[in-house]
Structures are given as structure tokens and as C-alpha cells.
Design a protein around this nucleic acid. Structure first.
Length: 115
DNA sequence: ACGTTGACGTCAG
DNA sequence: TCTGACGCCAACG
């Protein structure tokens, strides 16, 4: 019934939509929590299909496993970074953020940063 | 039909 | 810490 691709896309978008402001998830995590482990690249492809108008999907809250921005080659790297900084996410001089602090896990549903 | 590409992740050096 | 190789799999030409 449900085509794998369509189902995957739907699951990914619904999950990303739930990431609270100021929090981030990695492509790999999104893929895993969506029920499709190992398909991080496909997550990026789905999000890429949202541009340039992202609508209600907070695509900027998805980054790579190193805590860095992967969208510079697509041309929206600076934008993504600015949006995240505006939400309170901090980046170190290397351009990476601490996933221990800003990473978000669905099961630990917490919107605010633990201070 | 097929080789290449890509908003990734992991591991070795 | 950084770089390159590889695995991954759907989209593209």
C-alpha cells in the first residue's frame, strides 16, 4: 500500500516538525526515529525538496552528526546558521554546536534547555 | 538501463 | 582534529 518513499517522506517531515526551537537533531537520528535507520542521506534529500519555501517545517533544526551545518554547498548554509543562532543555538569557532546541549530526542520530550 | 551525484555516517590513518 | 575511503540508497541525466 504505502510506498516506502512516500511513507519515509511523511515520517521525516512529521518528526522534523516536532523539533522545538533552539534544539537540533542529526540526519541520522531523524532517519532512525522515523523508522528508517541508515538513510541519513535520504533525509537530506527530503528536506532539500522543501526549498526555497520551507513552510512550517523547521528544516534548519537538522544538522550533521558532527554538530555542523551541511547546507553551505546548497547555498543556504549562512541562513540555516543565522536561524539557529537566533533560536539560541551556540556554535564554537569550528562551526559546530554541542549536541549534548542542543540535541533533541523525541522520547525525552523537553522543549527547554536544561540549565 | 546505467553511471553519477548527494543537506550523511562511520572508521582508519 | 582533519582527511580520505567506503557504505548507503534514491534521484537524475
Amino acid at each position: 500500500m504505502s510506498e516506502p518513499t512516500a511513507e519515509f517522506r511523511h515520517r521525516v517531515l512529521e518528526l522534523v516538525r516536532q523539533i522545538p526551537p533552539g534544539r537540533v537533531m542529526t540526519y541520522g537520528q531523524v532517519a532512525r526515529y522515523a523508522g528508517f535507520p541508515g538513510r541519513a542521506r535520504q533525509v537530506g534529500f527530503v528536506l532539500h525538496s522543501l526549498l526555497p519555501a520551507s513552510g512550517e517545517i523547521p528544516w534548519q533544526r537538522v544538522i550533521n552528526a558532527q554538530g555542523g551545518i551541511s547546507t553551505y554547498r546548497v547555498g543556504v548554509g549562512e541562513l540555516q546558521r543565522a536561524l539557529l543562532v537566533h533560536e539560541g543555538v551556540e556554535f564554537n569557532p569550528s562551526g559546530r554546536c554541542d549536541l549534548e546541549r542542543f540535541g533533541w530526542r523525541p522520547e525525552v520530550d523537553e522543549g527547554a534547555l536544561g540549565l
